[in-house]
């Protein structure tokens, strides 16, 4: 540049280094990020409530790409997604019962159906509002098999244990919890059969408890004499997983 020439407006601008807007944006984002961590839980809930009707109507599944698209997050504890053909699927009911059974999906559908439309709350924070479920009350399945009243010494039927055909997952409920009207063996959700990703063809839905109690890919129900820790419970989660009063969380109960 020519030092001796007169200062033109263009030169004056060259000397002006400009405002450090880049730095302001970076600092602003850091502030927003920290703020978002502090209040994001509430924002996230409000947003997923707002988007729930939209994602429910969306049949393309594209709205799942949105972070607050409501939507379920699919967790499996094994490497690949378990799969069972609805025709060959069987649910075994055994343990301390008088009439052990092996139920097909058709057998379950032939039993009195119950439907619930309730939220699904995960212990990691996400919640899907107003999910329609159809199935059979767990109490009805237990009655069909006939829970043993007395039993031999030390074998009082006080709990129910669930196994999954993924080969790893287990869960348990006390007999009292298992007999609640909002605990069901579900074969339909959101108006259709339960998909493989959601734990189909048959899964447990324990409405008042965190999602890890709602054992996916349900393959066995066993009446036992004590509650045994399930997969996540051996890894630190609460056995009595009431939504809002367990695992140190304060979510709205379902």
């Amino acid at each position: 540049m020519d030092d001796t020439g007169p200062a033109t407006p263009a030169e004056a601008e060259v000397v002006d280094p400009g405002a450090p807007v880049g730095r302001r944006i970076v600092l602003g984002m850091l502030g927003l990020g920290v703020g978002g961590v502090l209040v994001g839980a509430r924002l996230s809930d409000a947003l997923s409530r707002l988007l729930a009707p939209i994602t429910a109507a969306d049949r393309t599944g594209l709205s799942d790409l949105l972070p607050a698209g409501g939507g379920f997050r699919i967790y499996t504890v094994t490497g690949s997604l378990p799969s069972a053909d609805e025709a060959s699927y069987r649910l075994t009911v055994g343990g301390l019962v008088d009439r052990p059974a092996s139920l097909s999906v058709a057998d379950l559908r032939a039993m009195p159906a119950t439907s619930l439309t309730k939220d699904f709350q995960c212990v990691t924070g996400w919640r899907v509002h107003q999910v329609p479920w159809v199935g059979v009350r767990l109490a009805d399945v237990l009655d069909r098999a006939g829970v043993q009243a007395g039993g031999a010494r030390g074998t009082r039927a006080t709990a129910v244990r669930f196994t999954s055909f993924d080969g790893s997952y287990t869960e348990s409920l006390t007999m009292e919890q298992a007999r609640r009207p909002d605990v069901m063996v579900a074969y339909s959700m959101q108006g259709g059969p339960i998909s493989r990703a959601h734990g189909g063809p048959v899964r447990l839905y324990v409405a008042p408890m965190y999602g890890y109690k709602s054992c996916k890919w349900l393959s066995g129900i066993e009446v036992t004499d004590r509650v045994q820790e399930g997969y996540w419970e051996r890894r630190g989660y609460d056995v009595d997983a009431w939504i809002g009063t367990s695992n140190g969380r304060d979510d709205e109960p379902v």
């Binding site: 502090l38 839980a41 996230s44 924070g125 140190g248």
Partner: peptide
């Protein structure tokens, strides 16, 4: 804190988008 975990997930997801 648990609410921070939910908040962090929320921020992480949206900034990623």
């Amino acid at each position: 804190d648990l609410s921070w975990r939910t908040g962090a997930t929320f921020v992480h997801d949206w900034v990623a988008t």
